[in-house]
């Protein structure tokens, strides 16, 4: 019995060597429980050691292995070959990012934006809170529910890759960064909203978003960044009209 195989059409680009990205096709064994990442690793270990890509956990939680699979941003550790078989699988670097090499994109822009939105608990007494037994800040399951969904982001960048706004305007803060800011704004333990709003409420923040909604569709963790952005728009608008109509209040 001959082993069944599947073709993998992979975008290659080696700086200094290739002037343009090219497509290289590899034939790998087909197994119905293999994911695209398994096939890429097979290529690297057995066919072509020069193929470069990122991966770490192989269980859909580290966020390393996002790529375009047949034109859609996906975690390659969760995209099965069987979804394409017997057609060939097209593997490209995540869209909307500068490509550094082969399937590796530059996400420094996101890393910078992430720190801009201050994604951590802000409160004046944070460093003086007592620690240990019984000193947790109380938070009911319902209060946890308020933000938990937005804390599921694994920074895999699929949402940026699906966002045409980010593609056209790279200054846009983007779905994941805003979702994470929203996660902290909604956390009952946090008091830092006023420090985050000038960034996420700026013209390059939430207002660039036109609610295409594809970020939430491709999110492998059901974070719904689109909801985070629309809700932040609503809250910011409320704040804005309040401060205009009652400039004396809340200063």
């Amino acid at each position: 019995m001959t082993e069944s195989t599947i073709k993998l059409a992979v975008t290659r680009y080696r700086p200094g060597q290739d002037r343009e990205p090219t497509v290289q096709t590899y034939t790998v064994p087909y197994h119905d429980d293999w994911v695209v990442l398994d096939a890429l690793q097979y290529v690297k270990d057995n066919i072509d050691g020069t193929l470069s890509f990122r991966w770490s956990c192989h269980m859909g939680v580290c966020g390393s292995c996002g790529m375009m699979v047949d034109g859609t941003p996906k975690l390659t550790c969760a995209a099965f070959l069987r979804e394409s078989y017997p057609r060939e699988v097209r593997v490209e670097p995540l869209a909307n990012f500068p490509v550094v090499r082969d399937l590796i994109v530059d996400i420094d822009d996101f890393m910078h934006k992430l720190s801009e939105v201050k994604p951590y608990i802000i409160r004046e007494d944070l460093d003086s809170l007592p620690l240990g037994l019984g000193h947790e800040l109380r938070q009911t399951p319902a209060e946890l529910e308020d933000f938990k969904q937005f804390g599921m982001c694994i920074n895999c960048m699929l949402c940026y890759s699906a966002c045409p706004v980010y593609a056209m305007e790279p200054k846009f803060l983007g779905p994941a960064a805003i979702a994470l800011a929203h996660r902290y704004n909604m956390d009952s333990r946090d008091q830092g909203r006023n420090q985050r709003m000038p960034v996420i409420g700026s013209s390059e923040g939430i207002w660039e978003c036109t609610f295409v909604g594809e970020c939430s569709v491709v999110c492998p963790k059901h974070v719904d960044p689109a909801a985070a952005i629309q809700r932040t728009k609503l809250a910011t608008t409320n704040d804005w009209f309040k401060s205009m109509l009652m400039p004396w209040g809340n200063r």
Binding site: N96, D106, P164, A167
Partner: peptide
Amino acid sequence: LAPGYRPALSNGWWLSN
């Protein structure tokens, strides 16, 4: 940063899905 490339989005992007 090493030189890379950034693929551009075509104006017909909205026909792609």
